[in-house]
């Protein structure tokens, strides 16, 4: 952890001087005031300089972004990562060459990377974060595909009057299916099996 003690005529001056030494900005540090300083008489007698201790706050998000970049670099040289935070959800958006390789079959590689980043982040940080790793709009495309699949299989379940099981999916993908069919009153959905083989089942509602 980097930290610096600096002095100046006022607290503000001291902080600015410390920030210059650390080469950072005020929103990335914690400031401890050791001495507020005194102006003295006419600015000549009894002046005391302000002293502050400035510590660079550990930026967990930046640390995991580096972690993610390191993993991704094993796949392709030119991948960019864009980070955005919304509440406790952190989204890393990947773009660049060989994105398909990073996504993998049905997103399995992307999901694996996402889980690693989430575990790493929550180990570092006291707060709990939910991590989403996306690649060139994959999550949105997948959502549309799943919704279409849901409606198609709901029709099928209705027609053959039998339960229709889907393949195992991670929880947020199952959630997409459940919410897509939430308002369809001819069928009901539930999840069956235990992780990692938990899957959605669509059953027709008999009247």
């Amino acid at each position: 952890m980097k930290q610096v003690t600096a002095s100046g005529q006022t607290v503000e001056d001291a902080v600015q001087s410390a920030l210059k030494q650390l080469n950072t900005t005020e929103d990335q540090v914690n400031v401890d005031i050791i001495d507020e300083g005194k102006k003295g008489m006419f600015g000549i007698f009894g002046t005391k300089r302000a002293i502050v201790k400035v510590t660079v706050a550990e930026n967990h998000l930046q640390q995991v972004e580096t972690y993610l970049k390191q993993i991704v670099s094993a796949f392709s040289e030119d991948v960019f990562v864009e980070t955005s935070t919304k509440g406790s959800t952190v989204t890393f958006d990947l773009s660049g060459k060989s994105i398909a390789l990073l996504i993998g079959k049905r997103g399995q590689t992307l999901n694996a990377i996402q889980y690693l980043v989430q575990v790493a982040l929550n180990r570092l940080s006291k707060e709990r974060y939910h991590v989403v790793v996306d690649a060139e709009g994959y999550r949105k495309r997948r959502k549309e595909t799943l919704e279409q699949l849901a409606h198609r299989l709901a029709d099928k379940a209705n027609k053959i009057k039998k339960h229709v099981s889907l393949e195992p999916m991670p929880s947020y993908e199952r959630k997409i299916i459940h919410s897509a069919l939430q308002h369809n009153e001819q069928i009901a959905t539930y999840s069956d099996g235990t992780e990692p083989n938990r899957h959605v089942v669509i059953k027709p509602v008999t009247k």
């Binding site: 993993i71 094993a74 796949f75 390789l101 990073l102 993998g104 399995q108 590689t109 999901n111 694996a112 990377i113 889980y115 690693l116 575990v119 990692p196």
Partner: peptide, 13 residues
């Protein structure tokens, strides 16, 4: 679960 995702990433790479 973690062992599994490590393998997924390593095999894909």
């Amino acid at each position: 679960r973690i062992a599994k995702v490590i393998r997924t990433v390593v095999y894909a790479a």
